[in-house]
Design a protein around this nucleic acid. Sequence first.
DNA 1: TGCAAATTTCATTTTTTTTTGAAAATTTTG
DNA 2: CAAAATTTTCAAAAAAAAATGAAATTTGCA
Lengths: 170, 170
Amino acid sequence: MPQPPITGKNSSQVNVKDLEIESIDFFVRMMSMLGMPKSVGEIYGLLYFSPSALSMEHIVKHLGISIGSASQGLKTLRSLKAVRTSYVPGDRRDHYLAETEFRRLFSNFIKEEIMPHMDSAKERIERMESSLPPLSKEAEEFYKIRIEKLKRLTRAGGRLLPALAGLLKF
Amino acid sequence: MPQPPITGKNSSQVNVKDLEIESIDFFVRMMSMLGMPKSVGEIYGLLYFSPSALSMEHIVKHLGISIGSASQGLKTLRSLKAVRTSYVPGDRRDHYLAETEFRRLFSNFIKEEIMPHMDSAKERIERMESSLPPLSKEAEEFYKIRIEKLKRLTRAGGRLLPALAGLLKF
DNA sequence: TGCAAATTTCATTTTTTTTTGAAAATTTTG
DNA sequence: CAAAATTTTCAAAAAAAAATGAAATTTGCA
């Protein structure tokens, strides 16, 4: 059986591949915590440790995913500004690079994925208040306190979350 | 067709039911942002606006979910300390109340659901470092910087997230 | 202790989400 | 402008997640 060389180009390739696998694993988990599908984590994980911009074809072949997934995943990552395209001379295809400033990534994520929910939560609380019927004093007190707590929750969320990205001093 | 009365007990019931529906809707969305299944949001939403502790049977009937879902959902909520049981004299069943201190709820959520991931992320980064092969100076520089960024990310997350609950001044 | 009520567990079913793959659309350039 | 390469879209398939329901277990009280 062939023994892999201990040093030199070949061993580096193997080990950089290991690094890549760890990276993909890392980001698949990270992204899935944020509710993103596996393919999105895989693509970002691959790009994160790539020194050069990669074409979609490269991503598809390397990860063994379909071109549909790749296209969809890159679209998601673009909308989060987690990747950017870079021009490669003499190649008409788009080439992608990972955006690695996590502070900006979080800020985008909060703005795009969280804040819209906060906004609609506020509307829902308003509907709660308007559907609060006349009740006995103590019952009314109970419901009002609960509604007030929700208001504070969404207010705190709406202020704190956007501030959060700023707090991140990486 | 029967006209519902505009005021009085009956109308209040209808409107408190509306409130309840809004509450369930609110928490189903909120919980699903945190990756919790619908049933968990429904149960919490129902309990949140209930002045009295509710039995599992009540929850099952009221929400029209299975006892399996209810049992599983209550287990999840208990583990997050989002509900607590209260003793009801002359009734052997457990009765549940919503825990409404969101600060504590978030603190538990972060401790139980997020921090374990952070810990395993740190291990994965260590594995990355050990699989970094000897490379040219500039290649090594590139990979080291990327790994360092991940370290800072997890360090920041590990510090900031637990502090976050404390920041929440509801 | 024994029994009935209450709860949990878990294999199966249902629902939801993600991926695939091929057709349609777009883009580039010869 | 046309042809080829690339990318997007989307219906269908596959995979993953959640809900069901009935059997097994636990609980509390007669």
